[in-house]
């Protein structure tokens, strides 16, 4: 097995070009498990841990750019002010050791339905910057992730950064698992309130092959909110949960049932919304 340990993005991309069968290795929290279980045997790996430029992030006026190599621990520590729901999602990932290793870029590129940062990124209409030795392109998250663990990332390409709009207003992330920590999500929801645009965004995780936007729920609640004091009627909250559940397309597997996932997503979407309001009327 060929192992490349580049220090820059361009070195990483050349290593990818030189060894087309290679797998990019960031935190390895998914990939190494698959190798251990014998599910994958790559011809080589390109290790990204030393690529310092992948760990940069920048909080701009209108946008936040987050390097793909940003670990969950760094998200918890450094982004809880500007993206509290991302920090909350990162906090739910694995154990401290896993959070020290796993990265945002890995979560996006792995594209697991249970990826914990994905509901929020979906809610924010995140854009993913892909680079190769030939080009740089920007792909919206909902075009990047096409199915269970499948993406439009091409050969020789890697995730360089994730760009989300900077939105002022409350945001919350809730995740349901059958253990109080270190558990794979069986349903999750992110709610972002945009006070300026007076709209609510809502992303759902683990209830479909890809992260889901609960668009009808968003439209309904954005109408129902009294934006002067950020309040909404209790019935609208319940309706919000129900519409979120309607948007979900969950399956039954060994972790949970489709019925429960629908119920859970209704409950947590409504609670995320409730927490975002100052008052329920």
């Amino acid at each position: 097995m060929r192992v490349a340990r580049p220090r820059t993005i361009s070195e990483a991309l050349s290593a990818l070009d030189d060894n087309p069968g290679s797998q990019l290795l960031a935190g390895g929290t998914d990939f190494c498990v698959e190798v251990n279980y014998g599910h994958r045997r790559p011809e080589g790996v390109v290790c990204l841990r030393r690529v310092a430029e992948l760990r940069d992030f920048e909080v701009g006026e209108g946008k936040v750019r987050i390097g793909a190599g940003t670990t969950y621990t760094e998200m918890v520590k450094r982004l809880s002010g500007v993206l509290p729901a991302l920090a909350a999602a990162a906090r739910t990932v694995g154990s401290p050791q896993i959070r020290n290793a796993g990265t945002l870029g890995g979560n996006v590129a792995t594209a697991s339905p249970a990826g914990d940062t994905l509901p929020l990124l979906a809610a924010l209409d995140a854009e993913v910057v892909l680079v190769s030795s030939k080009a740089r392109r920007v792909v919206p998250l909902n075009e990047l992730i096409t199915g269970v663990k499948t993406t439009t990332i091409g050969p020789g390409e890697m995730v360089a950064e994730v760009v989300v709009p900077r939105i002022s207003g409350p945001q919350h992330f809730l995740k349901v698992g059958t253990r109080n920590a270190m558990v794979i999500s069986i349903a999750s929801a992110a709610v972002v309130v945009d006070l300026q645009a007076q709209v609510v965004r809502c992303g759902l995780g683990s209830v479909g092959p890809v992260p889901i936007r609960a668009s009808r729920a968003e439209e309904m609640i954005s109408e129902a909110i009294d934006w002067d004091d950020l309040s909404a009627p209790r019935a609208a909250l319940e309706r919000f949960g129900d519409l979120a559940a309607e948007a979900a397309r969950p399956i039954t597997d060994h972790r949970s049932t489709a019925d429960y996932r629908k119920r859970a997503v209704a409950v947590i979407a409504a609670r995320a919304m409730r927490r975002s309001l100052t008052r329920v009327t």
Partner: peptide, 13 residues
């Protein structure tokens, strides 16, 4: 609270 790190519950729940 129940849900732990997933932060799913408020005290009233």
């Amino acid at each position: 609270l129940p849900g732990g790190a997933g932060m799913t519950a408020d005290i009233s729940d």
